[in-house]
Design a protein around this nucleic acid. Structure first.
Length: 602
DNA sequence: CATGGCCCTG
DNA sequence: CAGGGCCATG
């Protein structure tokens, strides 16, 4: 018995056990923290606005107004503050252009908002913010005027209310006490955090309170004035409610765009449920390491046991200095047979494919939808079936994809677009401006495809051509392409089996007798070799299931060789047969045509 | 005959 | 990794 080999009690079990030993390594998520989910002013809006005393102004109108004000303030804080002076240069390619866009947008119907945060989301928000603000501003002014009228009409007493302009003029505390909304304020607070429904319900609440107040005040007024007051109030509140609602919708939709934007780094986006999907207490086992503590970049795509987030890189990428942020660890192996991983993948796929993979086509989809050209495919289908869309419009797809594909291929060795954000900004611009001319994404397989194929090898050693077709939606498959890709995997296997055989023989010569003692760990030479081959740059977290398969393969080779079967010319066949049955499901994320982009960074 | 896998070679 | 030959399947 060689004590140097760790024991794998049950080879066929939870994949995440294998790598445990290496589970430490203090990678700190801090750098990402800064760049990632931090800058979301809008996320602060709720709290700041709620803590604002204005909220409890008993005068309902004032309250609404305060809300509007708050929202406006929030908008000002939003990612692209139009505030002069500190305009983030990185995000504004060219100011004149932006201004033009804004102008243009102003003429458009205000609808769009609820339309879906889709592709145009980013731009929409950019222009939407200011636009909404201006609308609000107008409304505010109107409100002011109306209020003045009302107050004049009402009575001098109103003067004490000092409604004029100061939304914070009044002492909120007294107000609070008066209507005993102290506790309610809290409720509202929590409501607000709930999201849209909360906001809506709050609006309702205000409406209710309106009624109450209305019954009180008006009796002091002459009937005529009272009627007028009521009408005005109604109109006012109605208008404001609408405005507020629409603004809220915008605010709530826009951020979602941003969210998805940084999806991978924004914790909130990752359903907490995600932590559950880990294998029955086992997979995550001794990894109570809360998700929060882990580099969050890894989470979203992690559909699997996070068991080994860290085993990650015992190896460091030799040549290219990788900033921590650049190590996305896109995916944690979803143990082939790990249940529970599916939902996560799906979610991830939805999110990513919408904003990553299909962002480009999404762009087109957007156009399609907006431009109801009769001949185009039913937009619903196009919208609903990204893949379909891609297939239906290969030309468009290639046209749009090419530019940035080129770009990334050219820059293959350069730090790659760190995130979607970049793509949205810079690349989108590039895409929009580059001529489609030299684009023949066509039947060509680019290095990205190869890389992706290699990564897929971690999950499947014997992919069917259909599977390949499914996972390379941006490839126009033909006989040639298909066989080339099949050939790739054949080559991958070859290397893989060679390594396995070599390693098995090595173990034998090392005196190992029990195949069960053979386990492929992340710090083993074998793993190093494999990783080097399939995951050069080490920017992908090799899934545990692969390690398990590798271990098994190793053991099989060991058995065969030590049994002297290698004298038989086709002694490997049985092994192949075994291994060929152990393919795992490939994470949905790989279906994203742009997924490999993420990994181009070496 | 077509497809796909393995093997060997460059 | 690509090519080409060989072989097993269907």
């Amino acid at each position: 018995m060689n004590p140097n080999f760790s024991l794998l009690s049950q080879p066929s079990q939870a994949c995440s056990y294998l790598a445990e030993p290496c589970t430490k390594d203090g990678r700190s998520p801090s750098p990402r923290e800064q760049g990632g989910d931090s800058p979301f002013p809008w996320s602060q809006v709720p709290s700041s606005s709620l803590s604002d005393p204005d909220w409890f102004w008993d005068e309902h109108i004032q309250a609404k107004r305060a809300r509007v004000e708050t929202i406006v303030r929030g908008m000002c804080l939003s990612p692209n503050p139009p505030v002069p002076g500190n305009a983030p240069a990185r995000d504004s390619p060219c100011c004149p252009e932006k201004a033009r866009e804004r102008k243009r947008k102003q003429n458009l119907p205000v609808q769009q908002g609820p339309l879906k945060p889709g592709p145009a989301g980013d731009r929409g928000s950019r222009k939407g913010g200011p636009r909404v603000r201006e609308q609000l501003h107008l409304l505010k002014q109107q409100l002011k005027h109306l209020q003045e009228h009302i107050l004049q009409a009402a009575e001098p007493k109103a003067l004490t209310q000092g409604p004029g302009g100061s939304e914070t003029g009044k002492d909120p505390l007294s107000v609070k006490q008066r209507d005993g909304s102290g506790s309610r304020s809290w409720a509202v607070h929590s409501d607000h955090r709930q999201g849209s429904s909360g906001d809506l319900s709050r609006v309702e609440k205000h409406r209710v309170s309106e009624v109450k107040h209305q019954s009180e005040e008006p009796r002091l007024l002459p009937s005529g004035a009272r009627a007028l007051l009521e009408i005005l109030k109604k109109e006012l509140t109605g208008a404001i409610s609408q405005a507020v609602d629409s603004v809220l919708q915008k605010v709530l939709l826009d951020p979602s765009g941003h969210l998805t934007h940084l999806g991978r780094s924004f914790p909130g986006l990752v359903p907490d449920g995600r932590s559950e999907p880990s294998p029955p207490e086992g997979g995550a086992c001794k990894d109570p390491l809360p998700l929060a503590a882990l580099p969050r970049r890894a989470q979203p795509q992690t559909g699997a046991p996070l068991g080994n987030l860290s085993l990650a890189k015992p190896l460091d990428s030799p040549r290219y200095p990788v900033s921590p942020r650049m190590i996305p660890k896109p995916y944690q192996g979803p143990p082939a047979n790990c249940p529970l991983t599916v939902p996560a993948h799906i979610q991830e796929d939805q999110i990513l494919s919408q904003l990553l993979g299909h962002r480009p086509s999404g762009h087109w989809r957007g156009n399609l939808l907006q431009d109801p050209s009769p001949q185009s495919h039913p937009s619903s289908e196009v919208a609903l079936r990204p893949w379909r869309a891609a297939k239906l419009r290969p030309l468009a797809l290639s046209q749009q994809r090419c530019p940035w594909l080129f770009k990334s291929t050219c820059l293959e060795r350069l730090p790659l677009v760190p995130s979607v954000k970049m793509e949205q900004g810079g690349l989108q611009a590039v895409r929009d401006t580059l001529p489609f001319s030299s684009t023949q994404i066509q039947e060509g397989l680019n290095p990205g495809h190869l890389k992706k194929a290699k990564l897929m090898f971690f999950f499947t050693r014997y992919p069917s051509s259909n599977l390949l077709k499914a996972y390379f939606p941006d490839v126009q498959f033909n006989r040639c392409i298909t066989s080339q890709m099949i050939k790739w995997f054949s080559n991958f296997r070859e290397f893989y089996y060679i390594q396995m055989e070599k390693s098995a023989r090595q173990a034998i010569s090392d005196g190992v007798t029990n195949p069960k003692m053979l386990v492929v760990l992340r710090n083993s030479d074998l793993f190093r070799a494999l990783n080097m081959h399939y995951n050069k740059g080490n920017d992908f977290e090799v899934p545990d299931c692969f390690l398990e398969i590798a271990s098994l393969t190793l053991q099989e080779f060991f058995r065969a060789v030590s049994a002297g079967k290698d004298s038989d010319p086709s002694w490997k066949k049985p092994i192949y047969k075994i291994i060929s049955k152990l393919d795992s499901d490939i994470p949905e994320i790989f279906k994203s045509s742009s997924y490999p982009q993420e990994l181009f960074r070496n």
